[in-house]
Design a binder for these strands. Structure first.
Length: 308
DNA sequence: GGAATAACCTGGATGC
DNA sequence: TGCATCCAGGTTATTC
């Protein structure tokens, strides 16, 4: 499932292909891919055709392509915002390439050095989406996301927290947020308004590495435990990024359609019943808010709460 | 206002 | 073989 490393692999693949390119044409095959767009498919096509793309930027699991203003000068005012959802793919294809299975949108580009190419948005489960959105200034004045210099983010991404790999991410702010939450720490890790980019897979992996039970109330964690957790989140995300992301099936691929290798490095997620790589006891799987948590009940003990 | 839950969606796996 | 059911999970709207 596309989490931060997978989205970053896609962003890094798109950036050299789309930066400086001009949109020749847009084809929307399925308007369900535009659920975050204010208008219909025709409006999306009209708004994007003829525009020049300035780059590819990412915050957490959102990525966007800032668009040059129609008059050509000044900071970008709009961007194409993308979210891959559960099964979205952004693929680079030659002009006129055969339609992909589950293709929803195709954008034809002319690049000054690479020539013509197409960006295909394919999505099996249609949880992903594309939209054209206004850019708004970041409250802290720092760059909006990874891969761009401009201090702006799409309006629909403004409520999303920075991710742990962002230089402007506030460790102190993260500690304060956890100290205020009585929810399970895993739920807080998945809350994109607290910390972005972490999904079910990397939440389970980070908690396993930090030896923290996923249902530990966030506010019960010591400062040392929170720091350890944050360090493990960063380590897991960095390692997954280096290995090209996690692919269990054809759901996640890079812009060239290739799978990542991090699934081979997982210690807890998807390893129900297998021995914990640390202690040898079986990895447990429990139901957790309509999904699953994987952890080692021996290494990740649920601390007793002090009596009130 | 914070926290929890349902709904959205498709296709593979499983059971009968 | 065919059909029904379950499961995967990111985000958001709704409910408590």
């Amino acid at each position: 499932m596309p989490e931060l490393p997978e989205v970053e692999v896609v962003r890094a693949g798109l950036a050299p292909a789309v930066t400086g390119a001009t949109v020749l044409g847009v084809a929307v095959w399925d308007e369900r891919a535009l659920t975050r767009h204010a208008g219909d498919g025709s409006a999306f096509e009209a708004s994007l055709t003829g525009r020049r793309i300035r780059g590819a930027v990412r915050r957490g699991k959102f990525l966007w392509l800032p668009l040059e203003p129609r008059d050509g000068g000044g900071p970008a005012e709009q961007a194409v915002v993308g979210h891959l959802g559960m099964s979205g793919q952004l693929l680079l294809r030659a002009p006129g390439a055969a339609p992909e299975r589950h293709e929803r949108v195709r954008v034809d580009l002319a690049h000054p050095t690479h020539g013509e190419l197409s960006v295909v948005f394919a999505d099996q489960r249609t949880f992903g989406s594309l939209a054209i959105d206004d850019l708004v200034a970041t409250p802290d004045g720092a760059a909006g996301g990874f891969g761009g210099d401009e201090a702006s983010v799409p309006r629909q991404v403004a409520h999303i927290a920075r991710d742990p790999l962002d230089p402007a991410f506030s460790d102190a702010g993260f500690r304060r947020a956890l100290a205020r939450k009585d929810s399970a720490v895993k739920r807080v890790l998945l809350d994109q308004t607290v910390v972005s980019g972490v999904g079910n897979i990397y939440a389970d992996e980070s908690l396993w590495a930090a030896r923290i039970h996923p249902e530990t109330p966030a506010r019960d964690l010591s400062t040392r435990a929170v720091n350890r957790l944050l360090a493990e989140v960063r380590h897991v995300l960095d390692k997954a990024l280096a290995e090209g992301g996690t692919s269990f099936d054809a759901q996640y691929v890079n812009v060239n359609g290739q799978a990542g290798y991090f699934a081979h490095s997982l210690n807890a997620y998807g390893r129900t019943g297998e021995p914990c790589p640390r202690c040898g006891r079986p990895i447990m799987r429990v139901s957790f808010t309509n999904r699953s948590s994987h952890f080692c009940a021996h290494c990740q003990r649920l601390p007793r709460r002090p009596r009130a």
